[in-house]
């Protein structure tokens, strides 16, 4: 049963100001990234094995570079660091502006959806699972 764990998480999230205030502190109060849009499923990979104490980078930036040694989506980064998606977008913007991460936005045709070959690949991939 995961019920109790989930309940505890809900309580923590709503608990006073802590989790709401902290993300703001993490971004220095900024609500928007300096560059990029960062869809929930944009994939991110680090361009370096690690970053040192470059000026202007906080521990959360360093943590993202660490996480993104393996390819991660924006949603996964947010979940693993336990930060709201909006906060993670701002941090990713900082990293992208320094070329510390490479980002792939979801592939889409002008109509806004992936092409047919992607649909077929998903069907085949699911069958083979």
């Amino acid at each position: 049963m995961t019920g109790q764990g989930e309940l505890a998480e809900h309580e923590w999230v709503d608990d006073h100001a802590g989790p709401v205030v902290r993300p703001y502190a993490v971004t220095g109060g900024r609500a928007r990234p300096v560059t990029g849009t960062f869809d929930l499923i944009s994939l991110v990979t680090a361009t370096r094995a690690e970053v040192g104490s470059e000026s202007g980078l906080g521990p959360e930036h360093v943590a993202i570079v660490g996480l993104c040694q393996r390819i991660q989506s924006v949603a996964e980064i947010a979940a693993h660091l336990d930060l709201p998606v909006g906060t993670v977008r701002v941090l990713l913007g900082d990293l992208a502006a320094r070329s510390l991460v490479q980002v792939r936005e979801p592939r889409a045709t002008p109509a806004g959806l992936p092409d047919d070959s992607v649909f077929e690949a998903v069907i085949n991939g699911l069958r083979a699972l």
Partner: peptide, 21 residues
Amino acid sequence: MDYGRSERPAGAAPLPTAIKI
């Protein structure tokens, strides 16, 4: 931004396509 000077290792595979349901 300087796309020419990528610090990703040369020959690294392109990032995968992500889709959602």
